[in-house]
Amino acid sequence: MSLTDRLLQLTLLALTLAFVAPLLPGVIAKVKAAIAGRRGPTLVQLHRDLAKLWKKDMVRSETTSWVFSAGPAVTLVTTLFAALIVPIGPGPAPLAFEGDLILFVYLLALGRFFTTSAALDTGSAFEGMGAARDLTFAALAEVALLFGLLAASAHAGSRSLSTLLPTFDAATSTAPLLLVSAAFAIVLLTESARVPVDDPNTHLELTMVHEVMVLDHSGPALGLVLYGAALKLLVLAALIAHLLLPPLTSQLGWLALLPTLLGLAALIGLLESVTARLRLSHVPAFLVAAALLSGFGFLLEVT
């Protein structure tokens, strides 16, 4: 890749991270509103919210310490790092090296450590409950993710996301690809706290998972949390988009990628409109199903 191509890619990537990421929750909300027969908030509602939150003052709980601020801050930094490892757009990601997929998984885990610790720092019963649920679901989702990456790695003979995602395509291994994509979709719904694992619209603390962990954040800190969540949605959606799309080679690949990302967001909106969230005790079974799907994908790939 030439230098100008590289610069162009980095610029487009920066723009995507800054503007497309907050657009995805906007698309989800818009689709849900349309199906419910409402007009709904504008597509750029999150952009506006972020701008407003940035100017606001903060309050914090009297029990909290610096760990409370590490929740939003660390999650944002680790998700940004993860966004540099996953190839968003054509060509290899800015950070592509042997074993980067493991760093990717553990960056998300580092963010989770501090999100849950920040939740427990408030001393709230509900936030503790949310943290326990988040860690429980993440444990199972991580297995599904790893099996999928293992299948892709077996196919591509590589241990870098930038090489294995484009190589793992429908033409050469249809069934594993479908199984792994389905599993990744469930991981996406879990990690970004969507129906049927979690309901971002619920108003009852007792039933929340991700939302309840960030209840005590306000102002810019809340803005960081919301932006971090949108970024995570983008990164995981890009992972799936790369599985579904043919290998993107030229810079024009962005033209295919962006609609795919928005389409995935619209699909999530559709799903949220037609399904209810699962009972909490049934979520693990759903996630085990995801692990089994990618596990079978892995088996098909290696046998």
Binding site: D57, M58, V59, R60, S61, E62, T63, T64, W66, F68, S69, A70, P72, A73, T122, G123, S124, A125, F126, E127, L215, D216, G219, P220, A221, L224
Partner: peptide, 15 residues
């Protein structure tokens, strides 16, 4: 973030 948050007014945890 902590530099700003440390100076923020404190309230009881939302429960």
């Amino acid at each position: 973030l902590w530099r700003r948050l440390a100076r923020a007014p404190t309230v009881v945890t939302w429960d």
